[in-house]
Design a protein around this nucleic acid. Structure first.
Lengths: 242, 242
DNA sequence: CGCTGGGTTGACACTCTTCAAATTTCGTGG
DNA sequence: CCACGAAATTTGAAGAGTGTCAACCCAGCG
């Protein structure tokens, strides 16, 4: 099989074995790409869906001065540009963070498979809506939280998502991101990201250095970031954390 | 017909006449609701899709202290909770701004119609992805812009969307929102929203008072808000504004 | 009329940015 | 394995941008 993380945490369990097999069969062309490699460019036609097998990818937009705003982060098992299937063109760019391994499904193949399988199409739809739910949480993070809360929320989300696909044993995981990148995700400068990380470490909540993150106090981190994993639709109860 | 704005600017033109007719036929129960009325509550099962026929609706989340962050605004012609169809439960609340008129389609009806019409399902999917594209733009707005840019971007987007459904003649439109609401959309306080609005008015870009907005200088407003309407997928060319 | 909610303004505190420099880490070629 | 240069991190000091608090104004409405 392609990867045992294929669509984990993305509604995979809703699929019949037949649906899942057929979808996996349509996956072709495994490919490795280097770090900081642009995968999809805004405005260019998308002809295939890209599955992230290993590594991280991010969506982003640049402002007038060329400064980047990260919009989303993808972890192994995610389709990173499935919205390109109904949209045909994307409104933003997508790139790898560190080196990554990808696999592809042609839109033509998706079309053929899903035409006869409404349930499969609905599940792919669901997967893109999960991205939208995370977008909303990022809006909340940027609109209502201060810098410490934002960084805490960022790592709390990432840890929760990686845990769902078995990649964050004991709350520790590799993350090939600089402090400047983190700033671009949280709407703060790289310099300030550095100061925030120091405080989080001093408070015993989180350690992030040398491309490796470790959640030291998950409860405290989630409280500070006002993070409640319910929006990841992993089965958690629906009440906002406090 | 229900409303001539039904799904305008939402991919309506991609539908065959048959698709559109069948979808409209499934719409039932016109209902009027007052201002500031909660339509969907986070965590509660959604059994129908709600079409906004007249007025405005907003999606929002509250932080720990009960302060609101707006996540999205909806204009007439939009389905406001279509993501509840694949998701079944929403991760946020939805409420009206001013008084509004709604219509509904049962999920059961949607299921029946779309099972045999993959193209229709794809178009509904597309509509929800348009919401995701707007979410991304809101992330950009909050992450990269200062307070003036945020407010400018907010009004630029709203004017563009309303123009797509014929509701912003000469860049003027009704908007039953307080300055505090505006602040909740832009991640600033109501007090600061007031000061920003004054400056925009003094600069001849935008007038917003007494529930009525008027874009005085569309080019200038879009420049200040770094706004490029391409992400609304209305056919504009794909190059970021400057 | 007086109440109430929204709008307006001023003064001050605080968060975060900016700029600059020093330090450490990392990747690469010798 | 070491030396070197580039990139990333760390720290300090000063300044810009927003938040907070408080007062006042105004219009709509009971």
């Amino acid at each position: 099989m392609l990867t045992d993380r294929f669509l984990l945490g993305r509604g995979r369990e809703r699929l019949s074995d037949g649906d899942l097999r057929e979808l996996e069969a349509a996956v072709t062309q495994m490919r490795d790409v280097p770090a900081r490699h642009v995968l999809v460019r805004r405005g260019e036609p998308v002809r295939q869906a890209t599955l992230l097998v290993e590594g991280y990818a991010c969506r982003y937009m640049d402002d007038r001065d060329g400064r980047r705003q990260l919009l989303a982060l993808h972890v192994p098992g995610d389709f990173i540009d499935l919205h390109g299937f109904p949209m045909q063109v994307l409104d933003h760019d997508i790139a790898t963070l560190g080196p990554a391994r990808l696999a592809f499904v042609d839109h033509a193949g998706l079309e053929a498979i899903t035409a006869a399988r409404p349930q499969l199409m609905r599940m792919l739809w669901f997967s893109t809506l999960l991205d939208a739910a995370m977008h909303r949480e990022w809006i909340f993070r940027l609109g209502r939280l201060g810098s410490e809360g934002r960084v805490a929320h960022f790592f709390a989300e990432l840890e929760a998502r990686l845990a769902m696909v078995g990649l964050a044993p004991d709350g520790a995981f590799a993350l090939p991101m600089t402090q400047a990148d983190l700033g671009e995700a949280c709407g703060i400068t790289g310099v300030h990201a550095n100061r925030v990380l120091r405080r989080l470490r001093e408070d015993g909540l989180l350690a992030f250095a040398a491309g490796r993150a470790e959640v030291l106090d998950r409860t405290g981190l989630r409280r500070l970031g006002e993070f409640d994993p319910a929006y990841l639709y992993g089965g958690a109860p629906w009440s906002r954390a406090d």
